[in-house]
Amino acid sequence: MSSTSDNTPVIRITPPGKWEVIDFQELKDYRDLFFFLVWRDIKVLYAQTIMGFAWAILNPLVQIIIFSIIFGKVAKLDTDGIPYLLFSTVAIIPWSYMSEAMSRSSQSLVSGQGMLGKVYFPRLIFPITPILAKLVDFSISLVLLLAVMLYYRIAPTWNLLLLPFLVVLMMSVPAGIGFWLSALSIRFRDVKFAMPFVIRMLIYSAPILYTASSIPDGYRFFYSLNPIVAVIEGYRACLLGTPIPWEFILPGTVVSALLLVSGAIYFRKLERVFVDVI
């Protein structure tokens, strides 16, 4: 009856079991925590290293050099006429982001279990944090990309307008997988052991080292269901000015959206029992 009681928040705690939608308002209320957790991840990553953030460039650089020598010079893979170094740099930089974000996001609940059992905040913050934190590495490694593009004198085209969309797509793929796998990894620690293996497999599932045009026509559709394909081919077209491969981008976007939504729902369904199972 009194007006003060109307604006005190009321929290109701009930047994689990219901399907719940994502509470965006709550996530927004916790934005400061988000900020600090992301910042902690970034800050801690290169703590007590000599090279610091230079590692964000060195890691992909070494990969690019190795791949360029093995697949470009020795195996001489066909790249639709693009220099192999350029071809692989454009793919490996988003790929490094996706693979790292994916494996960290999948492990986020297990590695954060100390906090999980001691304090409440929206559990989705756990898998989302690495998705955001890894963007810093990604941005730094763009310097490398820029250098390679300057070296080959690639001028930007209107395709560059696609970049913001591609960044969002690139984030949603590891996020969707991260939601699913982090929720599963609480019960099945197998996820941890399977992850490096899965990532090694995934690098061959997408046109990182070869061109998508080398896939036989009959398999194209199945191939396009892999959202990583859409991201990699999208980046190539966007940065190198080749024709935009809508036949990959559209199915990839749909699949990654499905992955993201279903992952979030599954996560929300199980999030309240995480602590009891961990």
Binding site: V10, R12, I13, T14, L116, K118, V119, V273
Partner: peptide, 14 residues
């Protein structure tokens, strides 16, 4: 503190 849910019953916190 909403860390673990009850198996049964309700709590309301104002």
């Amino acid at each position: 503190s909403r860390i673990t849910p009850p198996t049964r019953g309700n709590v309301s916190i104002h």
